[in-house]
Write a protein that binds this DNA or RNA. Structure first.
Lengths: 115, 115
DNA sequence: CCCGTACTCAAGCATCTGCTTTATCAAGCG
DNA sequence: CGCTTGATAAAGCAGATGCTTGAGTACGGG
């Protein structure tokens, strides 16, 4: 019954994806690791700003960070994306099931009357 | 070329899903339409607050609203969810392709050396 | 040891959010 | 018509967000 924890996770996940800079970082990282400096150059933004975006992404589980010399390279954690997809797919499945039911009933009634 | 428009759409979509009340409204609507009043009772919230959440959801394309007597029933638009999924899946696909490449190269090298 | 590089921490600031209260509106009932 | 019901509009407010600047911190080269 730790549903609340899942909700927090989903809050962090979707909130992280709700910003286009962070979404673009995700896309960028899907094709390989990157450092803070590289990302700052890419987005014409200070390293501080990028660092804050990365903190949001890290809290959401979408990325993780290592250490290599003076750099803190970050990499994508695609399992977090899978969590988001599975939440969405559950809603879509419920909806699809209901529509199947409606179609069936409509086919039975063959008519739209007292609605 | 209208990539900006898509980005705006994704901003609205993921931002809408970044709030647990709105996510729960999506889940609720996946099993049928609902009115503002019904949702307000469900979340122990004023109708005004629900109305604002619904506006966010509507702007994102996740729901649409009709009119029936004094009520404004809202229903889910699952195609918007599909947009979110397809964005996510593209990142995951890119990542998976890259990992395949890495695996292949690692198998060729048969060794982890100068790392 | 000093210096540059990569980065984080902290504070400030404008803007956005989520919610409230108050006021208003439109539809239908008596 | 007056009144209730379902809903929106507007304004206000505490708290979050996205960014900035300024001040550290940690690592490594010379």
């Amino acid at each position: 019954m730790d549903a609340t924890i899942d909700e927090e996770r989903l809050d962090a996940l979707f909130t992280a994806l709700g910003d286009r800079t962070r979404r673009d970082i995700v896309v960028r990282l899907s094709s390989g690791e990157a450092t803070v400096k590289e990302l700052a150059e890419r987005y014409a933004m200070t390293m501080q700003a990028v660092s804050q975006h990365l903190r949001v992404l890290e809290r959401s589980g979408l990325i993780s960070r290592g250490r290599h010399r003076q750099t803190r390279p970050c990499r994508l954690e695609p399992e977090a994306l899978a969590v988001a997809v599975s939440w969405i797919e559950e809603s879509r499945r419920t909806w699809a099931e209901r529509m199947d039911g409606l179609e069936t009933r409509l086919a039975q009634l063959q008519e739209g009357d007292d609605r």
